[in-house]
Amino acid sequence: MQSAMNALNPVLTVAEQMRDACRAHSNMSRAEIEARSREVLRLVSIDPVHLHSYPHQLSGGMRQRAMIAMALLFTPDLVIMDEPTSALDVVAQRSLMVQIKELQERLGFAVIFVTHDMSLVSHFSDRLLVMYAGQVAEMSKTRELFDRPLHPYSHGLLEAFPSIRGPNARLAGIPGSPPDLANLPTGCRFAPRCPLVEPRCTAAEVPLYSVNGSLVRCVLRENGR
């Protein structure tokens, strides 16, 4: 399930939306649905009195958690989240992430989490998939990617974020902007913005290379290093 500020229908109460979901997938009775709804709200630490509230009566963080509660109605194996924290302040972001991680460990579901905020996922995710212009640029274990990014783009993404541990390192952006998908450059799609660009980068499409269990789409890693 993806989740964002506006993923709740503004004209229905939380209870009604949960009931909709239950009815679509099971033949639970009204009372059972009500009980289950209260249960999942409690799981994400929302007071069940909010069951009959409309989304606009909830705070941003509560809405996000209500969304996650809705995803938990059926003890899923997989939860998909699309920038669930983008509209929240930093403190609320952290607490939401901690809660997601806790629930994940307790209930054992897998998570796909989409974000553009590298620092947010560093402590929570097992693996990272870096996408660039529709392709996989790099896929590694989170720790490994943070310690030693293989793709110049991953490197750039890391540079663009303040590190919590590091001293006042200078923040570097990545110059330029992503390519127009209708008008892609030949060869490596990142080449026009890459600080380490070489002539052979633009010669041909770059395949994914395997480096110590990680995958990376960069000619520099051709030899598996």
Binding site: V114, H116, S125, R127, L129, V130, Q135
Partner: peptide
């Protein structure tokens, strides 16, 4: 099963 995968990238990367 139970894995946490994060997908990162700029807007418009798909």
């Amino acid at each position: 099963r139970g894995e946490f995968l994060a997908i990162v990238g700029e807007s418009g990367c798909g």
